[in-house]
Design a binder for these strands. Sequence first.
DNA 1: ATAAATTTTTAGGCAAGACTAAAAATTTAT
DNA 2: ATAAATTTTTAGTCTTGCCTAAAAATTTAT
Lengths: 218, 218
Amino acid sequence: MFSQSEENYIKAIYHLGVEVTKGISTNAIAKRLETKASSVTDMIKKLSEKEVVVYKKYQGVTLTDFGKKTAANIIRKHRLWEVFLVEELNFSWDEVHEVAEQLEHIKSPKLIDELDAFLGYPKRDPHGDPIPDKDGNLPQIQKSLLATLQKNEKGVCVGVNDTSSEFLRFLDKQEIGLGQDIEVLDKEPFDDSFLVKINGKEITISNKVANNIYIQKK
Amino acid sequence: MFSQSEENYIKAIYHLGVEVTKGISTNAIAKRLETKASSVTDMIKKLSEKEVVVYKKYQGVTLTDFGKKTAANIIRKHRLWEVFLVEELNFSWDEVHEVAEQLEHIKSPKLIDELDAFLGYPKRDPHGDPIPDKDGNLPQIQKSLLATLQKNEKGVCVGVNDTSSEFLRFLDKQEIGLGQDIEVLDKEPFDDSFLVKINGKEITISNKVANNIYIQKK
DNA sequence: ATAAATTTTTAGGCAAGACTAAAAATTTAT
DNA sequence: ATAAATTTTTAGTCTTGCCTAAAAATTTAT
């Protein structure tokens, strides 16, 4: 069994390690968890003894298979709770994170299995991120950043990269959400902004925004 | 804001203080929380500084009004989560306590208000205990121990005193639950046991059991 | 009323998890 | 290749919440 603090480190290492082969640096973990590098070193030693990570001094850390499974389970809980908050308790997608950060640490296998069933075994959370199954497997779909689409390509919004409240509320204002059809009408070479059609309306989207919206092409 | 540990102390003091006018003893708190008296003294000093309790050396503690309100809020969360677990996630009434002990510490006013609404503003938890409202007020109903009923009195089960798994599972086996009609057919002077009619069946109930079931007379 | 038993508090320590400051190792720049 | 900059680790400290052992206060018994 892991403490909340240990779980937070495991999750951070997991997220930092997605599509990276080298070890995760002490500094990167410290930055993500808003803590100090020396604290990270301490915790890494502990997680290493518990065989959650592989660690060699000055070389960063990698999750073991056990560590990955542990991480997937924490993320599973986090995302299921997010679904619950949005679908059942009227939270908006920019409000869920803080509460899910707490709920993900509740220890009860039955609770999470029942919650999963209660929610109808959802595959994705309110931000479009996949929910790991009980064995830690992620359903992968292929998705592209809106910014990579060419003129006249169409797709449907399947996720976001930035999940900050500011960005999510901006999307709400623009009526962009998961499942929303988006068509690229034009790209402006000057500032790499996009002219897109959403809900029948034509709106301009900055390059920064286009780099934070995931699209499934069609 | 209080730590989980502080919240557990506040709750313990509240429960020990129901229908008691004197201060709660250090030892009583230690026993309830399965900790040592010296640890209790430490925590009591802290809670006293935070104006949650009134404390004079060697005289036990009492909750301040602020402390009572805090306690009621924790209990509100605990009981609402219990309702959720039983009504929505298929937990039985003997399984909920441990998980609710964790969930009660989640910090989010919106979460608990929405949960309350989602559940339809329940007045009582699965054991028949009243759920405090947002201001900390308890709906009090008058209830009597089954053991105090006379021959031929009738009532409905509205709560339990002992909430241990053993007792609750015993009640399940006897098909006794909240809302169950119970009629005292006879009392046996020899061992103070009861002959009662439940669900049309006549069964004998020990005095110990009768002292742990609350009845609303009718 | 005093002795014995009990309860409560104090004093000192320990583990987890964080921090600061300084040392050591590594990487980058010249 | 060496100096400078950066990253990482070590060493020592702090807080929270717990512990044991001993001292102090209170209660109970004789």
